[in-house]
Design a protein around this nucleic acid. Structure first.
Length: 418
RNA sequence: GGAGACUUCGCCUAGUCUGGUCUAUGGCGCCGCACUGCUAAUGCGGUUGGGGUCUUAAAGCCCCUCCCGGGUUCGAAUCCCGGAGUCUCCGCCA
């Protein structure tokens, strides 16, 4: 949720942000009104409550006649206080709803517009020259690494088995990611994949992405779509020491319903209901967030370099940011069979938006608690197998193994079909 | 799944039976000051968090906060109901 002080002091910034996202500006005025109403309700309640407490203090010492008088007044007050309190509760709820209706304020410099209005920041690495490239599924089946038929048999479409070198490749990739994260001081973390509603809510995934989320109704739990969720909720309600950013690298399976993506990426493991991921997550001081964001992007690029895959970096446009993000950079890897770049990482600066919802704070120089900024970024996912297999394929259907992954595949430098 | 115990302002803890003087006790830690010729000891003071109001800002004042939500009452840390979490024991089980 956004900062109410910012809203009061500078509502125009919030309106501009809404415009850049292509979203409603009237919700800004709704929120301003709700804020005003809550404050006046609080004022009424507190005045009544103060009187009630004053009179209550005299009660034990009061003599018979005074006592009767006091009782009469305090009985009235009791009802008034109760009503005023109910009004505050309602105003709080209205305010909260209005606050939840507004996504994070976009960072200055974010390209305006929608999904197609991204800006390409750079392209890195040479695209391989491959004649009639096989796609990742054909390669994966040849290597007996990917089995979507049996995935569909047991679980339905968009499920798969990784077997043999496929399993080793994924485990190697994820371990490489964890190793890199540890090298840079991240705390490697294996997270819960099921979370409570407030954790899901606090991360901002029950807004526009609600239909993407698996819910276990019998237990009122949600399956996470990314370990960002349990990592963000990890320190909820806490006051952290953020002299240095607190960095976690989460390893978890991720679950997505992919509602509304019927017909898109139906082949192979490009878009699936369940996959594994190593995710970087940082808590830091707000003034440090911008620099931290660029660091996360740098670490993503370092991982892409290790798997020797060409990619480009895009600056995602405001309308495609998602609820919590103020700025987002995606790395897209080259996929030869499709002749285009496809998203393999995404790093978001959520500024204090999640921190405020989840109540994560730190102490500033004066020792006062302040809301922490949060950031996240992908270090490796199952989807990475697609560009890895395709870019390193050879005409006979074998696949070269990037040097960094070789130790995880028993030292092999080539995977042969069998 | 069954039974019981517990949850207090960073940590530990008093208070709950018997509602008002709880504006929540004490210790530890932490911060400041004083003193002592060293970073030790001692003394004094401070130390939950959120919100409102006022203000350039701070201070002040007020409200909320004793796990959460209801209820009883003029008044709830305290009594009642519901929920969550932790622990112990029993049962079942990978």
């Amino acid at each position: 949720m956004i900062d109410l002080r910012l809203l009061r002091d500078d509502p125009e910034t919030v309106r501009l942000s809404q415009r850049a996202r292509g979203e409603s500006e009237s919700v800004v005025d709704d929120l301003l009104r709700a804020d005003e109403q809550r404050r006046s309700a609080v004022g009424r309640f507190e005045a009544l409550r103060a009187e009630q407490k004053q009179l209550g203090k005299r009660m034990p010492r009061a003599e018979a006649e005074e006592k009767a008088e006091l009782l009469r007044r305090t009985k009235e007050l009791s009802a008034e206080v109760k009503a005023a309190e109910a009004a505050v509760t309602e105003a709080d709820a209205t305010l909260r709803r209005a606050q939840y209706a507004i996504p994070n304020v976009v960072e200055e410099g974010t390209p305006p517009g929608g999904e197609d209005d991204y800006v390409v920041l750079r392209e890195v690495g040479a695209k391989p020259e491959i004649e009639n490239p096989r796609d990742h599924l054909e390669l994966g089946e040849g290597l007996r690494a990917i089995d979507v038929e049996r995935g569909a048999k047991t679980s339905g479409s968009r499920f798969y088995y990784l077997t043999g070198v496929g399993a080793l490749l994924q485990l190697g990739l994820l371990q490489l990611a964890i190793a890199q994260a540890v090298e840079y001081g991240f705390v490697p973390t294996i997270t819960p994949a099921l979370v409570k509603p407030e954790s899901m809510e606090g991360t901002g995934f029950l807004g526009s992405h609600a239909s993407e989320v698996y819910r276990l109704e019998a237990d009122d739990l949600f399956l996470v779509g990314t370990s960002e969720v349990p990592l963000a909720a990890y320190h909820s309600g806490e006051i952290l020491d953020l002299a240095e950013p607190a960095r976690y690298a989460g390893w978890s399976s991720c679950f997505r319903r992919e509602a509304g993506s019927y017909g898109r990426d139906t082949r192979g493991i490009m878009r699936v209901h369940q996959f594994d991921k190593v995710e970087m997550f940082s808590y830091c001081r707000p003034e440090e967030a911008h620099a931290e964001h660029l660091r996360l992007l740098g670490w993503e690029e370092e991982m892409l370099a290790k798997v020797e895959v060409p990619y480009r970096v895009i600056d995602v446009a405001a309308g495609d940011l998602g609820t919590s993000a103020a700025r987002k950079y995606d790395c897209e890897a080259w996929v030869p069979s499709q002749g285009r770049y496809r998203e393999v990482t995404s790093t978001s600066n959520c500024t204090t938006f999640q921190g405020r919802r989840l109540n994560v704070r730190y102490r500033d120089e004066q020792g006062r608690p302040q809301v922490a900024a949060t950031l996240n970024g992908t270090l490796a996912t199952t989807r990475w197998l697609v560009p890895i297999l395709e870019n390193h394929q050879q005409p006979d259907g074998s696949v070269r193994v990037p040097k960094a992954l070789q130790p995880y595949l028993g030292g092999r430098d080539v995977l042969e079909p069998n």
